[in-house]
Design a protein around this nucleic acid. Structure first.
Lengths: 195, 195
DNA sequence: CGTTGTTGCCAACAAGCGTTGACCAACAAG
DNA sequence: CTTGTTGGTCAACGCTTGTTGGCAACAACG
């Protein structure tokens, strides 16, 4: 048999958890640096210090590996706790944090541009996580999706210029300046009365 | 010999010009649709109705083909002729036009995200073409690059959401609405007195 | 006519890819 | 000690890729 002593424990510690984690970390790095096609399973396995066949065993195939590596939560603070007047600054600052904390968002953006599954995940993340924010603060909840998309376009555009294309002025701009410039834009997209 | 009758004519018509053009057109479509890695020379040749080896003969290698296929001009109207007060709206409208006219910009964006040469070309295009505009209208010419990068971040972000990720609210938004929302942002990035 | 350069197709190459299955060492349970 | 499970390596498969060189048809020009 293969049952555990406590079937109600959701965490099932396996001896190979360290390997699994190493694979995921290496995969995130490679996907973020190279995109989907050029991030090869062989290279990821080499980075993780194991054999490529282990990746297949643990994640099924390359798509499954990407799905596992790009699973994450934006962790946007809950809607009610946000000061509606400064939601632009809060959102921009939060996204800069999330973008610089790890490489998952960069990987997601790089893959989403050339891979259908990646694009779908990107859409899902942004509509599901910025949408509610917009619905909570914009005047007419009916066009919340549209306002969320506008805010996302500015946030994604800065991420693209700063972290992916590395356009020098955008990449070198201090964090505070980015917030100072972008916050009014996002604020207007989300809360302005009239287009 | 292989000389023409009129050596001063820059246009050197060859019998294979039609083939060359077909290759370039197919390449632009494939690069725009699939990105650099997944756009294979074989598929491009098939679209153009010729043998893959012809692509190599005419463009050297895959990189050369991309360089030729992504060569283009933003054709931004000359700086002096622009009304500084409405430069935001003019720029946004112009970019929407350029983006929808052909597939070159989409190809450039898709490739620039995963390919070093593509990223370099994207940087070159935007710094060289939005930079002068910013220098012509912003209060302090010293931070023109920074303002150009900010404007580029919003324009690129909308293009990403609308044409590449196809985030539904952004993709379906009427052209006039996009201009109405984005123009004030770009205008502020380029001409506002203080951050 | 012959020569020469161009245009094109065909067949192949070496390399790299994702993926698979056989096999082995270590360990836990009986 | 035996037996089954787990973590892992190794060698190979079938396939696609970019790229190359040879060969046939055709045009241009002496």
């Amino acid at each position: 048999m293969m049952m555990e002593a406590a079937p109600d424990t959701p965490a099932t510690p396996r001896r190979s958890d360290a390997t699994r984690a190493a694979i995921l970390e290496a995969a995130r790095e490679r996907f973020a640096a190279d995109g989907y096609e050029r991030a090869t399973i062989r290279a990821i396995a080499r980075d993780a210090g194991i054999d490529p066949s282990m990746v297949m065993r643990y994640y099924g195939n390359k798509e499954g590996l990407f799905a596992a590596a790009s699973e994450f939560d934006l962790r946007i603070p809950k809607v009610g706790a946000l000061p509606a007047k400064h939601i632009g600054a809060v959102l921009v600052a939060h996204f800069l944090d999330r973008w610089e904390a790890d490489e998952v968002l960069t990987a997601l953006l790089r893959v989403g541009v050339t891979n259908a599954a990646g694009a779908e995940r990107m859409r899902a993340v942004f509509t599901a996580q910025i949408g509610p924010i917009a619905a909570g603060v914009c005047p007419d909840p009916a066009d919340a999706p549209r306002r969320a998309a506008l805010a996302a376009s500015q946030i994604l555009g800065m991420a693209l210029a700063r972290y992916v294309l590395r356009l020098p002025p955008a990449a070198e701009m201090p964090r505070e300046d980015v917030i100072a410039w972008l916050a009014p834009t996002v604020q207007r997209y989300l809360t302005a009365e009239h287009p």
